[in-house]
Amino acid sequence: MQTFDPVEVLTLPLMANLATVSSDGAPRNSPVWFIWEDSALWMPGAQGASAVKRLQQDSRCSVEIVHFDNDAGILLHLGFRGHALIEPNCPALFKRLLRKYLGPESNWNEWFIENVARINSPSGRMIRLVPESTFTNNVSFFKTGPVLAWPPTGWSLESD
Rank of each mutant, 00 (worst) to 15 (best):
A84V: 07
H67R: 11
E37S: 03
H77V: 14
Q57M: 06
F34Q: 04
I35S: 09
R125P: 01
D71H: 08
N115I: 04
Q57W: 00
L76D: 08
R128L: 05
S59N: 12
D24A: 10
A92E: 15
G48H: 12
L97S: 10
W108V: 07
Q57G: 06
P88M: 06
W36F: 09
E110S: 14
N17V: 12
N17C: 08
G82L: 10
S121I: 01
L12D: 00
E64K: 04
S123N: 13
I74T: 14
S23E: 14
D38M: 03
I65W: 01
G82R: 11
M15F: 07
C90F: 05
G25M: 06
E37L: 06
I74G: 04
I113R: 09
N115V: 04
L97M: 15
N70M: 05
A46Y: 13
A92I: 12
W108N: 03
L14I: 08
L12S: 03
W111G: 10
I119R: 05
R99V: 12
E87T: 02
N109G: 04
S59K: 10
E37W: 00
N109T: 07
I74V: 15
I74F: 00
F80Q: 08
T20W: 09
H83A: 11
L97W: 07
D69M: 04
S50D: 12
R128G: 01
E8F: 00
A117Y: 09
G73P: 12
N17M: 13
P13W: 09
M126G: 04
D69S: 11
Q47M: 10
F34K: 04
N107R: 14
G103A: 03
C90M: 06
L129F: 03
S30G: 00
